[in-house]
Design a protein around this nucleic acid. Sequence first.
DNA 1: TCCCAAATTTCGGCATGCCGAAATAATACG
DNA 2: CGTATTATTTCGGCATGCCGAAATTTGGGA
Lengths: 218, 218
Amino acid sequence: MNGSTTVEDYVKTIYGHTEWQPESITPSALAARMGLAASSVTEMVKKLAASGLVTHVPYGAITLTDQGRALALRMVRRHRLIETWLVESFGYGWDEVHDEAEVLEHALSDRMLDAISRQLGQPTRDPHGDPIPAADGTVRLPDAVLLSQASDGHRGAVVRISDRNPELLRWLDEHAVRLDAPIEVIERRPFGGALAVLVDGHPLDLGSDAAAAIWLAA
Amino acid sequence: MNGSTTVEDYVKTIYGHTEWQPESITPSALAARMGLAASSVTEMVKKLAASGLVTHVPYGAITLTDQGRALALRMVRRHRLIETWLVESFGYGWDEVHDEAEVLEHALSDRMLDAISRQLGQPTRDPHGDPIPAADGTVRLPDAVLLSQASDGHRGAVVRISDRNPELLRWLDEHAVRLDAPIEVIERRPFGGALAVLVDGHPLDLGSDAAAAIWLAA
DNA sequence: TCCCAAATTTCGGCATGCCGAAATAATACG
DNA sequence: CGTATTATTTCGGCATGCCGAAATTTGGGA
């Protein structure tokens, strides 16, 4: 079957491409993100457009409709709530929650989801610091800057750590770069985006990968 | 896609047909249980046989192999553990757990399942009193008789209440027929299997449906 | 034993999603 | 402005699972 699961994944991926901007993406980028052939994407997008989830000008970009965005937010809420749940109630680590959540977001009923949200105290951030959309689709955007764009001397607390890279997540975890850990930028390298920072008072040299994965409270 | 989910459902259904006897079933009975056309079953059974999960003599019965039984037991364990979990941790009623479990049994990882089992204290019976197979496939059969076969004067405690009939489950629940509630058979009707019994000391007239759904500790 | 009815299987078809190769459109650059 | 590169779409095909209709097999009864 899976009719629904596939649609949900497409929509969520389109949304995730540029979470803070108009949700549009080119077919090739979408194909790359989903690990599919471009031709598969073209076909599926045709169906998504037919059901009113996206708009698509031929040879142009794919953009979520309001309906598509609503579905995407529903899936993002599910994913992040489940990740939080796995960490809080099942002892999963940051780096271990993604795959399980990827499956469960399509399988849990709304009733379970509600119960889980209640058990967790209606959280609004997931273990990576990403906002968990409310059930009505409302999202509170974090007031944050990308760490690699922060200026020398900038100080604040980590508010978001990108998932999807288990190795990096473990490295960050080992070096005490955790959600809400205070960070101060002490040196800014001219090229490549690498930074030296203070994390919890200790100097640390962040590669550009790590810097790109961290958002700093403004 | 679902390659695996479908196989799991077939095997579980074959097993469930005659849980306490050799696990074999005719194609038509299997089709009826699964709500599928007979032709679909024929085709799928061919594939199950090819992967060594069942044996099948053409035009004859379908029988689980050891490998098939192992997979079936794995799925039964998952189903019953999940049902127990939904009742214990999420406030579901007896009659509400089946559909959710039907989905989740294919979606939860072994890791989650283990954690759930641990959180529940490694239960060996589900909310209906059915045995939960151990992770290694071991099943402890309840030492019980079918209530409708119990003789007049027979007394014991309810040990099993069949699921899959929400209306009946609610009726039983309302009349205090719960797992482990003591029952005494006070009158046995000659035809139809209906019984009058004492439940928790109160006389109650059980229709034949209810009687067929209840097992009594011997 | 022979034949009929019921059960089972075979066959062509359909829907979903995916792929690679070939065709086509858009874009970029000289 | 024209062409070459790149992106996108179209097309035929494949795999999984399902269906109904048309064989085929089985088993019981006359």
